[in-house]
Structures are given as structure tokens and as C-alpha cells.
């Protein structure tokens, strides 16, 4: 396993984890009159974490589904643009050639 990729994965995961804590703490913990999490807060944190993970998974699924089509479209457009540019160049060149022939005669 290459170290760099693994390190990046680990970092991504940790970042996601920290973000999740921040978000769920912000949303779920309203009462700082107690030191321990209350029952509803606990439930909220649990739901918040699970839902976020499911959201991540779902987003990834949809992204994987759409990404190839978008990539393909972009590639096709690039090819079209290139073909157009080439055609334009060819025309201007042929005009130039005609000019040259005319000048010769």
C-alpha cells in the first residue's frame, strides 16, 4: 500500500470526523447546564452522525453515477472545439494559398 494515499485517506477521514463532531455538537447540544450528555442529546448526536454518514454515502453514489457522463460530455465538447479550430485554420490557410497562387499568376 502506498503511504501517501493511505495518509491522505486517514486525513480525509479524520477531517470528516472532526467536522461531524463540530456540526452535531452545534446542533444537538443546547443545554450547558449539565456536564454529561442528556438522553435526548445523546439520541440527537447518534442520529446526526448516522444521517451524515448516510448522506455521504448517498452523495458518493449519485456522484459516481453522474461523473462519467459529465466527463464524457466535457471531452466531446473539447474535441468539437478542436475540430472547429482546425477547420477554421484550414480555411484561412486555403484562402492564403489561393491568394499566393493568384499573386503568382
Amino acid at each position: 500500500m502506498d503511504t501517501e494515499g493511505a495518509a491522505r485517506n486517514f486525513k480525509d477521514f479524520m477531517q470528516m470526523y472532526n467536522q461531524l463532531t463540530e456540526r452535531c455538537f452545534g446542533v444537538c447540544v443546547a443545554d450547558l447546564g449539565t456536564r454529561r450528555l442528556t438522553e435526548p442529546e445523546e439520541q440527537c448526536v447518534s442520529n446526526c452522525a448516522t444521517k451524515n454518514v448516510r448522506l455521504n454515502n448517498r452523495t458518493m453514489e449519485v456522484f459516481m453515477e453522474l461523473q462519467p457522463a459529465i466527463l464524457e460530455k466535457r471531452q466531446r465538447e473539447a474535441m468539437e472545439a478542436m475540430a472547429k479550430a482546425e477547420a477554421a485554420q484550414a480555411t484561412s490557410q486555403s484562402i492564403g494559398d489561393n491568394q499566393a497562387t493568384k499573386d503568382l499568376t
Partner: peptide, 17 residues
């Protein structure tokens, strides 16, 4: 309390993950 709770949330989410 906030720090204590934050760490508890962090711990819980870690276990959940």
C-alpha cells in the same frame, strides 16, 4: 461543561463511525 460535552460527543461519534 462545554469541553466535557464536546469530548463526549467526539468520543460517541468515533465509536459510532
Amino acid at each position: 461543561r462545554c469541553v466535557a460535552k464536546y469530548l463526549e460527543v467526539h468520543d460517541r461519534i468515533g465509536k459510532k463511525l
